[in-house]
Nucleic acid binder design. Structure first.
Lengths: 124, 124
DNA sequence: CAGGATCCTGTAAGATACTG
DNA sequence: CAGTATCTTACAGGATCCTG
């Protein structure tokens, strides 16, 4: 079941890698509010580079989580929108986010204690 | 709420990055079965390098998800174990894994269709 | 046994410039 | 507007050797 050669496990770890990458969750959450155009997304996620936004969207599209609709006008218009699959992913992500929020303090505390001990052993 | 300067959001994205890294989830799942020694973990996760296992465990320890117990015998013995916090993380992770398993086929299908179209446009 | 230190490599990802 | 192409850098992560 945890065998890396198991294709299901490979899909899961690929998914986790995608979730873990720097922009995927941010984009999914932003699109959660409704369809958005390319530059709308850029504006709402100011820190993302154009390149990274493009790549992230391509990956999400490839995985069937986001749909891409081109309107061949001038200027061109491209709308991105969560698919049903993409929307269904929001629930487990939200579970993780909730866990994180519930435990921010515990984690921070642990980190502070850990770093303090490390400093002690350096000082000593 | 999605403001990157918000410390809660930073914690969340740090968590997501940790979840997304190559080994964290594997280690947490492996430790889910009970405490393990360093080389037990290595054996159960054959693909992990010594270095990466050490680093992953340090990070988990720093975040308070894993406890590290040294028994100063010869040879030395070090046991790693999920803390309560670490165990509580298993639930949301499991939510994600379940989602992935439920949707493996949909995702694979989407990828296949996407790649097929890409090949078409190259061929054309 | 558990892990620190070092070296080396591939890839992620930012900045910049150009195009239909 | 919505990208693609190219260059460059930073860091993740593997291999290897060494130590208490």
């Amino acid at each position: 079941m945890r065998d890396p050669s198991n294709p299901v496990c490979r899909t899961i770890s690929t998914l986790l890698a995608r979730i873990g990458d720097k922009w995927t969750v941010l984009v999914v959450q932003t699109l959660g509010a409704g369809p958005k155009r390319f530059n709308e997304l850029r504006r709402e996620i100011p820190s993302v580079s154009q390149r990274m936004l493009t790549l992230t969207l391509r990956n999400l599209e490839r995985d069937g989580l986001v749909s891409r609709t081109v309107t061949p006008s001038i200027p061109p218009r491209v709308d991105y929108e969560l698919t049903e699959l993409g929307q269904s992913l929001q629930k487990p992500i939200c579970g993780l986010a909730t866990w994180a929020m519930d435990n921010v303090e515990a984690i921070h505390g642990a980190q502070t204690r850990f770093d303090a001990e490390r400093d002690d052993s350096i000082a000593a």
